[in-house]
Design a protein around this nucleic acid. Structure first.
Length: 288
DNA sequence: GCCCAGGGAATCG
DNA sequence: CGATTCCATGGG
């Protein structure tokens, strides 16, 4: 269990290594976060609104009691995972050593599968600011008001919403994908909470949904289902891998997955996130 | 106006 | 089969 102390309206996490709230939230794995000031954020997740303020004293979570901290946020922020072990395991070459050093405070969140699934369907062929905007509009229109914002709408709240109404959120061609996703969840054709199966089987199940291909399925499995061996390969990861591991040659996804599995095995998902953050912040593989 | 975004489905050859 | 084309929208 992490080292924390209980304060009046929150929890102060002390001496936590590998925790940088800015890197954790800005590294592209989640969308419902709001920056207040430097190292001070608000998030909406797991049916809560939470403020996080990081300083030299530690990381302060509020409003938050011991129950919520231990039952929700320790899991959400992956606090029982030893990141030193992961960093050592993935640092198999100078490139990854640099990427790990660059994003040393990154943690993989454990998000809610249903929200992650809808969010990453929206993410396809889209950019992060716009993805955030769409999810925000969807929450404001269909979700429950909570604190200073709105919770992500439940399946129950979205079940009767038509494709046309989804389209009005300006999701474009993804409207019918979202509707197909809702239908398959309602019918139980896809069950996000009975996942006692291999990653391959789980991936196949997710990919039954229209608009869910390998990349979206991998993001959902990595960010919300603890499948840390998958290696979501989007344009950024493709670029950085081609640039740094394949001599600048345009490389197909299969070859990238194969190399990732070979180099990083069950920690490939963490390696991917260090590389994604490094590539996007430093714009690796762009113009030159 | 063009290009691109945490891609994937539909269509073509 | 693999390769191309199309899909909505908004920021640069």
């Amino acid at each position: 269990m992490p080292n924390y102390i209980c304060c009046e309206n929150g929890i102060l996490l002390k001496e936590q290594d590998s925790f940088n709230i800015e890197q954790i939230l800005e590294c592209g794995q989640c969308f419902r976060f709001y920056k207040n000031e430097e190292m001070s954020y608000r998030i909406i997740a797991r049916g809560r609104e939470l403020f996080i303020k990081q300083s030299e004293n530690g990381v302060f979570f509020y409003p938050c009691d011991i129950n919520d901290f231990e039952n929700i946020w320790v899991d959400y922020f992956d606090l029982n995972t030893d990141y030193n072990e992961i960093k050592n395991a993935v640092s198999t070459d100078e490139i990854m050593k640099k990427a790990v050093e660059y994003g040393e405070g990154i943690r993989l969140l454990n998000q809610e599968p249903y929200e992650a699934l809808i969010s990453f369907i929206i993410s396809q062929n889209n950019n992060i600011p716009r993805i955030k905007g769409i999810i925000e509009r969807m929450s404001e229109k269909y979700g429950t008001k909570y604190g200073g914002g709105y919770l992500f709408p439940t399946l129950e709240q979205l079940k009767g919403v038509s494709t046309e109404e989804i389209f009005e959120l300006r999701v474009g061609f993804r409207a019918r994908y979202i509707r197909d996703c809702l239908d398959k969840l309602i019918l139980g054709e896809v069950d996000l909470y009975n996942t006692d199966c291999s990653t391959e089987e789980l991936c196949r199940e997710l990919m039954q949904i229209k608009g869910v291909g390998q990349k979206v399925a991998d993001c959902v499995m990595l960010f919300s289902m603890r499948r840390r061996e998958v290696f979501p390969t989007d344009v950024w990861v493709k670029r950085v891998m081609s640039e740094l591991y394949f001599g600048g040659e345009d490389t197909d996804i299969k070859s990238i997955h194969s190399l990732a599995a070979q180099k990083w095995g069950k920690y490939a998902g963490y390696a991917q996130q260090y590389l994604f953050y490094y590539a996007r912040e430093e714009k690796i593989g762009i113009n030159k």
